[in-house]
């Protein structure tokens, strides 16, 4: 006993060092172990106070870039309005020509509105790690639920994985655990989007058969299979299609979302998601 006390007194700094190291490892394993969304709600809330202040500084630096993105989004919305206006005129013209069809018009066939959007701001966003996350300023009070998609004005950004009352944490597209069903908008072939770490501007689309002719410059969009994101939201532009692995492409995509300058995002609420997902529960093997 005396020897133990003597040892502890003599090497107290070393012992203390080991205790601190042990404490750090316990914290890492409990709160990180790859899936950092395991972070407890309290720590998450505490972290917000610091991150919100940092976000203010960051917003100031990014104003210029943000303005450009907003202008682009405005322009694309204008184009869509014009396009819809022309389609409306065309449809009205047809209906006037054939008035019998109006009575036969079945309201049930009008396409249901599957998605609505919750605008939000980025409080914290990392790009330099292997497992990156985006913290958003909207939470369960605003109707955010885990599993909802997150998009930027330019394309896909991530997926909500954890929600507190006022905040939510989203798995960024720049996370080794993020996977998404994607398709080549030109050929319609479906593959899987994945990120492999490193550069925040590039990701990969995998599992498209090598028989398909992928061209550099093809637009890669969401397939709509997941019921999280609407179909046709841009993921990125194909920038390299040379690598072929076991008969499948592993093609490089230049991501359309500028992750180093995202401030305003939208959380996608898929209104019919629960109904669609419930169809696949308890399927016979």
């Amino acid at each position: 006993m005396f020897r133990i006390v003597k040892f502890l007194t003599e090497y107290r700094n070393v012992v203390y060092w080991f205790i601190l190291q042990f404490l750090a490892i316990i914290i890492i394993v409990n709160y990180n172990d790859y899936q950092r969304h395991e972070v407890g709600d309290n720590i998450l809330q505490l972290s917000k106070a610091m991150q919100a202040r940092r976000a203010n500084v960051k917003n100031y630096f990014n104003l210029d870039k943000e303005n450009r993105i907003l202008t682009e989004e405005n322009l694309s919305l204008h184009r869509k309005v014009e396009h819809l206006k022309s389609r409306l005129n065309y449809t009205e013209g047809i209906l006037r020509l054939d008035s019998n069809r109006i009575t036969a018009f079945d309201t049930n066939k009008i396409k249901k509105q599957y998605y609505s959007y919750i605008p939000c701001r980025v409080i914290n966003n990392t790009t330099e790690r292997n497992y990156n996350y985006i913290t958003l300023d909207k939470g369960s009070v605003d109707g955010v639920k885990p599993g909802m998609g997150v998009i930027s004005p330019r394309g896909i950004a991530g997926k909500v994985i954890r929600v507190t009352k006022d905040y939510s944490l989203a798995l960024s597209m720049l996370n080794l655990n993020f996977k998404l069903s994607a398709k080549d908008s030109r050929t319609g072939n479906v593959g899987m989007y994945e990120w492999e770490g490193g550069n925040s501007r590039f990701g990969y689309i995998k599992y498209i058969p090598q028989e398909v002719e992928l061209r550099i410059g093809d637009t890669i969009v969401t397939s709509g299979y997941s019921s999280v994101f609407p179909e046709g939201i841009i993921i990125g532009i194909l920038s390299d299609n040379k690598v072929i692995k076991a008969g499948f492409y592993k093609a490089k995509i230049a991501l359309s979302t500028p992750f180093d300058a995202i401030n305003d995002l939208y959380i996608v609420e898929a209104k019919q998601r629960e109904a669609i997902d419930s169809l696949t529960i308890n399927l016979p093997e």
């Binding site: 190291q21 750090a24 490892i25 990180n32």
Partner: peptide, 14 residues
């Protein structure tokens, strides 16, 4: 805490 990397910096600096 500020960067959601709980324990990693603490361990590295120790």
């Amino acid at each position: 805490i500020s960067g959601l990397t709980l324990g990693v910096h603490a361990s590295a600096i120790t």
